[in-house]
Amino acid sequence: MKVLQFTIPVAHDKSVIFEQVHLPHFYPYLHRHEEIQITWIQQGEGTLVVGNHMHDFAPGDVFFLGPNLPHLFKSNPEYFNSDSNKCVKAITIFFNPNGQLHAVLDLPEMKPVKAFLQQYQHGFKVPDDAFNEISSKMLSFKNAFGPDQLIHLFKLLKILYHHGVKAEGLSSYGTSHRISENEGIRISNIYNYIMQFYHEAITLEDVANAAHMTPQAFCRYFKKHTGHTFISFLNEVRINESCKKLTDYTYDSISTVAYKCGFNSITNFNRVFRMVTGTSPREYIDNYNRNFNNPIRVAG
């Protein structure tokens, strides 16, 4: 398995690993591994890049990531400042469904769970109404050993199976596409460059130069390894960031958010916003207010 080759430190006498991290920021490179990963974000904010899609993450979010799915928990820029007091905390459960657990998952009683795991290889975000049950079960792994860990895993999978059957996948691209270690680092650096300078008038030439490639070679390379064109990825980054700004009480108008996110006209912003999200900025704010009962007043 290659992407950025990333080997989860599962001991030979264990088929499940419990990991709790407390770091300045999350691992900064696109990577994949054979293990399924279930991560509970306890502290920290940023963007989860999965395959060819992006999703915000914040404390209280739980993500299920399938095996060999390229992903990157990209912490917000402020987490990389040397004088920042910010940090991230997370709990993760790893297990390889095709490893030592393969025989168990082949049992007749496990058929629905095995089908569920195969169906959601592109991952999903755990619904909010399942958070208390899922987080409580994940905490139970901390001091569990031997057969208790397996019992907790099967109980966790049962909960995920019941809550995840209608969840939307995190990505539509990437589990079968192989990326070498060097390519994983290069793509991560490209992602980081775009996500750092998205608010500026960056061009294809700028990003190609940062990747030490010609624009033509960069276009082919980026499309092959991400499923995105440079413009489509840049637009997704900009719209993703604009969604955060529209709902964080920081800006008093939609046009201000548009310009802060790198758009040079409100017309273009509205067009791209609808293309990426399926709604207008105003509709997005109204939907947010209805769903969270937390009125936000932003001028046009």
Rank of each mutant, 00 (worst) to 15 (best):
Q121A: 00
Y29R: 03
T214Q: 05
R271T: 12
Q118N: 00
R220H: 06
T229C: 07
Q5N: 13
E35V: 07
I296E: 08
N287D: 05
S75W: 00
L23C: 09
G174P: 13
S172G: 15
L153E: 08
L30H: 04
D106T: 00
V3N: 12
N235C: 09
P70L: 01
T226N: 01
P28C: 06
H225D: 10
I266T: 15
F222S: 07
A90E: 07
G164H: 01
S253R: 10
Y161K: 02
T247F: 11
E109M: 00
M195F: 12
A258G: 15
Y193Q: 15
L72Y: 02
D248R: 12
E205F: 01
I194A: 15
P97C: 14
N293R: 02
N287R: 04
I151G: 02
P28S: 10
I93K: 02
F269S: 05
H31D: 02
Y173G: 00
I36A: 05
E168A: 14
K260C: 14
F95D: 14
N209K: 13
K2I: 01
H25F: 14
N143G: 07
N68Q: 09
K223A: 01
A90I: 06
H55V: 09
F230C: 00
Y249T: 06
A208V: 11
T39Y: 04
I239F: 10
P281G: 05
I93C: 03
M275W: 03
M275F: 08
G174N: 09
Q121I: 00
M138C: 06
L153K: 01
S172N: 14
T203Q: 05
F263H: 05
H163F: 11
Y29G: 02
S253T: 15
N98Y: 15
A208W: 13
F145W: 01
L156R: 03
F131I: 12
N189S: 07
S171Y: 09
N85I: 13
F64A: 05
R271H: 11
F273R: 02
T277I: 06
A58S: 15
S180M: 07
V104W: 07
N293H: 12
T256G: 12
D13Y: 13
V126D: 06
P77F: 01
H122M: 04
I202Q: 06
A210P: 03
R290K: 08
L107H: 08
P70N: 02
D286Q: 08
S15E: 11
V237S: 00
N98E: 15
S136R: 14
Y27G: 01
P108R: 05
F141I: 06
T47W: 04
F94Y: 13
